[in-house]
Design a protein around this nucleic acid. Structure first.
Length: 368
DNA sequence: GATGCGTGGAC
DNA sequence: TGTCCAAGCAT
């Protein structure tokens, strides 16, 4: 049919024009980014050197630690874990408490519990990580992003990662007006076709490096960006306004009291928190429940031991992901023979315990 | 889809 | 000083 021929001809012309543009003026986007990556890639402890193959265990360990966490914060923890648990089977065979002690201070402690559960699952598979997104996705603590990252980086599979960096890069390039998280399907659709069949692992790391070092949340270095000529937000000089996000609501304030019981030999009374919820499975200084009002003068009725409790001047403040906390700190001295209450123990090496940051602040406050 | 879940650094 | 944020996941 005539109409069909016309359509085919115009399609052919479009394809030829596209090919001409690509070959004569601009390489495919992934090639441009990979060429930049080959010159500017970051050297990170968990990364293989150019030409070397990545160790799936190190890739997995680093990806879990890097969830919602900066490279600077995760770095020392990664090295500590690698030294103590050189492979996934060693990690699987360690007690959970050892893992939590080493993770203490890094935050989001469900990651540590899931890390241990995941290590056990992989150990049950012979110590070999699945090499597909679906296989990885089925493991504890591994979601869509992490599954794609491990598949791409450790196994060089053409999986498309979409993390905060990619969301920022993509929404800027296309000036995506839709707010997060509603924009996620659109971002995914825009990111998918960019993933190359050649060097997908390097491409995944390249686009994250681009987001982390060039396409930063504030003051992006657009002059140095390999994609600047394709970026709609840059063309309009409105880079920093992407990605669009709804304003955040204010964090509620909570209050409580913490009881630092000090034994004559310097030991401090500790207990273990419930496995679930905030700081799940971590160690804490015994305290009152946390509520909306300041503890009353008789807060000491909830002390773990009867004693001469005195309230210290000042308070400990700490900001969690979804509320702010102010703690009164009370201390009391106890004889060396004092027995710990149920579910508590005396500790002489507080530094080695699985104490989250907020509890380390409490100990520090009591010692001064 | 909205909510719960840490921490420390940058501005 | 307060705000935002940094390679998300589980429910």
């Amino acid at each position: 049919m005539e109409g069909g021929e016309k359509t085919a001809t115009s399609r052919y012309k479009e394809l030829m024009a596209l090919a001409a543009r690509r070959s004569k003026t601009a390489p495919a986007p992934a090639e441009t980014l990979l060429a930049w990556y080959d010159r500017h890639r970051r050297r990170l402890p968990w990364r293989a050197l150019p030409g070397e193959s990545a160790d799936p265990y190190r890739v997995w360990l680093s990806e879990i630690m890097l969830q919602q966490t900066t490279v600077v914060a995760a770095g020392p923890y990664f090295l500590k874990f690698l030294q103590r648990f050189p492979d996934v089977v060693t990690l699987a065979e360690a007690p959970l408490d050892d893992v939590l002690r080493l993770w203490a201070g890094l935050g989001y402690y469900a990651r540590a519990r899931n890390l241990h559960a995941c290590a056990k699952a992989v150990a049950a598979l012979g110590g070999v990580f699945p090499d597909t997104e679906d296989g990885l996705r089925a493991l504890p603590g591994i979601g869509p992003y992490t599954a794609a990252a491990i598949a791409a980086i450790a196994f060089n599979r053409p999986a498309t990662i979409v993390d905060g960096n990619v969301e920022r890069v993509i929404t800027r390039i296309h000036a995506v007006e839709e707010e997060l998280p509603r924009a996620k399907p659109k971002i995914r659709a825009l990111a998918d076709p960019l993933t190359p069949q050649d060097r997908p692992g390097d491409y995944a790391q390249a686009i994250m490096d681009l987001g982390a070092t060039i396409c930063t949340p504030r003051k992006p270095a657009c002059a140095l960006c390999p994609w600047n000529s394709d970026c709609e937000a840059h063309a309009q000089r409105i880079e920093e306004s992407f990605p669009r996000k709804a304003a955040k609501t204010q964090k509620p304030q909570r209050h409580g009291a913490a009881f630092v019981a000090m034994r004559a030999d310097g030991a401090i009374l500790l207990r273990r928190r419930d496995e679930k919820g905030l700081l799940g499975g971590m160690t804490e200084i015994p305290g009152s429940p946390w509520g909306e009002k300041r503890p009353k003068a008789d807060a000491r009725t909830s002390a773990p031991l009867p004693g001469e409790w005195r309230t210290l001047p000042g308070t400990v403040t700490h900001v969690f992901s979804h509320f702010a906390l102010e703690l009164e700190v009370l201390t009391a001295q106890f004889p060396h023979k004092t027995k710990p209450p149920k579910d508590c123990w005396w500790s002489l090496e507080v530094d080695a315990e699985a104490l989250p940051s907020v509890m380390r602040k409490v100990v520090e406050h009591a010692r001064r």
